[in-house]
Amino acid sequence: LRLEVKLGQGCFGEVWMGTWNGTTRVAIKTLKPGTMSPEAFLQEAQVMKKLRHEKLVQLYAVVSEEPIYIVTEYMSKGSLLDFLKGETGKYLRLPQLVDMAAQIASGMAYVERMNYVHRDLRAANILVGENLVCKVADFGLARLIEDNEYTARQGAKFPIKWTAPEAALYGRFTIKSDVWSFGILLTELTTKGRVPYPGMVNREVLDQVERGYRMPCPPECPESLHDLMCQCWRKEPEERPTFEYLQAFL
């Protein structure tokens, strides 16, 4: 395994491009020591290896001592969030954005069929390849993070704006909380990567959403798509659509 080009840095580690087995181009995620327990990670990795779908980033291998390494397929255009905010983002029109959403829903419909939960679905965790191919990455890892700023769910590192209220408040993460996050991801797509709930801080978002506030229809977004977002944001988790439905609708 060779680490060649550093692609990015996040709160919990770095991402590199490299070569595996001398020939395969891969992405390598390294986790800061202390982010998660190697034992817990190894268990999760076994499950992650079983998830194989064309719209999920394929896991190739893991190094399960500290520092933990995760070796996955390489996606040339990086994260969907950076892609939307970058040069190419300007030229993306609604049909392409909807197609990308459908690809993500397709990957998540598979996660749904496998009775698995992602827990951290957002544009930053979707990767883009050639020809606007989108794949879901980092599934299941969020559960293992041991950082206090994260586990408190009120901490600075927790993605509260993407998280369903029952998950943020009571830790009830299910495929239905993933559906909520998918609704937020749809706003990221239609606004080219704007942060959700602009002008609001995490605490406010939690309070307002509890009181029934939902983001309005983004500019140039059809009402039918906003309606779909609002279905994803129904207060009762069981009233939210399935990913199978979302995939078919898109």
Rank of each mutant, 00 (worst) to 15 (best):
L1V: 15
R2V: 09
L7Y: 09
L7R: 11
Q9V: 05
F12T: 01
W16G: 15
G18I: 00
T19G: 13
T19P: 11
N21H: 13
T23S: 09
V26R: 09
L31Y: 04
T35L: 04
P38Y: 12
P38W: 14
E39K: 09
A45V: 04
A45F: 01
Q46M: 09
M48W: 00
M48H: 07
K49R: 03
K49E: 05
K50T: 13
K50A: 12
K50Q: 11
R52T: 13
E54L: 11
L56P: 04
V57M: 07
V57G: 09
V62R: 06
S64R: 05
S64P: 04
P67Q: 04
I70C: 04
K77P: 15
G78V: 02
G78Y: 04
L81Y: 15
L81Q: 11
D82T: 08
L84Q: 06
K85P: 07
K85S: 07
E87R: 14
E87Y: 12
T88Q: 10
Y91M: 10
V98D: 04
M100P: 03
G107E: 02
Y110L: 05
Y110F: 08
R119Y: 01
N125A: 01
N125C: 00
G129H: 12
G129M: 11
L132G: 11
C134L: 07
V136H: 02
V136T: 05
V136K: 00
F139N: 00
L141G: 00
A142Q: 00
R143C: 02
N148P: 02
N148C: 07
T151Q: 13
R153D: 06
Q154H: 10
A156R: 03
A156M: 06
A156G: 11
A156E: 04
A156Q: 06
F158R: 01
P159T: 01
I160H: 01
K161D: 02
W162Y: 03
A164D: 15
P165Y: 10
L169S: 09
G171C: 07
R172N: 04
F173L: 04
T174H: 13
I175D: 14
K176H: 11
S177I: 06
S181Y: 02
L186H: 03
L186V: 06
L186T: 07
L189S: 08
R194K: 08
R194S: 10
P196C: 04
P198S: 07
G199V: 07
V201M: 09
V201C: 13
V201R: 08
R203H: 13
R203D: 05
L206R: 02
Q208L: 15
R211S: 09
G212L: 05
Y213A: 06
R214K: 11
M215D: 04
C217A: 13
L225M: 13
H226T: 08
M229H: 10
C230A: 10
Q231E: 11
Q231Y: 12
C232T: 10
C232W: 02
R234I: 08
R234K: 10
E238C: 14
P241C: 07
E244P: 15
E244K: 11
L246Q: 07
F249P: 06
L250T: 07
